[in-house]
């Protein structure tokens, strides 16, 4: 059966996505750990298919200032990858890399932004690499683009981009654990519907 929306995925299909995501996020944690020279662990991710409002509530507050890195996927899978940094994760990462600590994103300079963009990109790339190997699809990634903005505004980008196809977002919710501290991760993988069908077909479950 061909899916028409993310919301059409059944439990089996969601379970498979969760399994793949779990491998993807652990690859991402390994890359982060190498980069920061520090043990980074990750909890088993939940894969949530949520509406815009639910995604905002799950990640934080609608007007909360967050940093986000966006990468476009093309080739056999078309879509977007979005990684959202909240203040706790940004501080943990910048503290280790640049020995800097902030109370707000507004205090950061170009150097910090660029570091966050690069880390977002590394997390996305290692996730997608694991994904392509597992599923057996070719995915090309664009150069990253990032912004510091209100969470609600950032999430309108994917919801508007696929607004004619679906009202839902696929939010992969796991937590990085560094120094015993749980840090929220906000990874969104948003293949377009055609690509989602192709992924499920490749996995032999559609």
């Amino acid at each position: 059966m061909r899916l028409k929306s993310y919301g059409d995925m059944n439990l089996l299909e969601l379970d498979v996505m969760k399994e793949i995501s779990s491998i993807g996020t652990s690859h991402a944690a390994t890359s982060l750990s190498k980069l920061l020279q520090k043990e980074v662990r990750i909890t088993i991710p939940e894969v949530n298919i949520l509406s815009y409002d639910e995604t905002v509530d799950k990640i934080g507050h609608i007007e909360e200032l967050v940093a986000a890195t966006l990468v476009q996927m093309s080739n056999e899978v078309n879509g977007l990858m979005l990684f959202i940094f909240k203040m706790d994760l940004a501080n943990a990462v910048l503290g280790k890399l640049l020995s800097r600590h902030y109370t707000s994103f507004e205090e950061m300079d170009e150097m910090d932004y660029s570091a966050l963009e690069e880390i977002g990109n590394i997390i996305i790339c290692s996730y997608v690499n694991a994904f392509t190997q597992l599923v057996g699809v070719e995915i090309d990634l664009s150069v990253p683009s990032s912004t510091i903005n209100m969470l609600g505004g950032i999430l309108t980008v994917p919801i508007a981009e696929y607004g004619y196809e679906t009202d839902k977002l696929m939010y992969i919710n796991a937590e990085f654990i560094m120094d015993g501290e749980k840090l929220s991760d906000g990874l969104l993988m948003l293949p377009d519907i055609e690509s989602l069908n192709r992924i499920l077909e490749k996995l032999g479950i559609s």
Binding site: L70, S142, S145, T147, T156, V157, E161
Partner: peptide
């Protein structure tokens, strides 16, 4: 919100 290099339409 995002400026994707090489894809000004996005």
């Amino acid at each position: 919100m995002f400026d994707v290099k090489g894809n000004s339409d996005f």
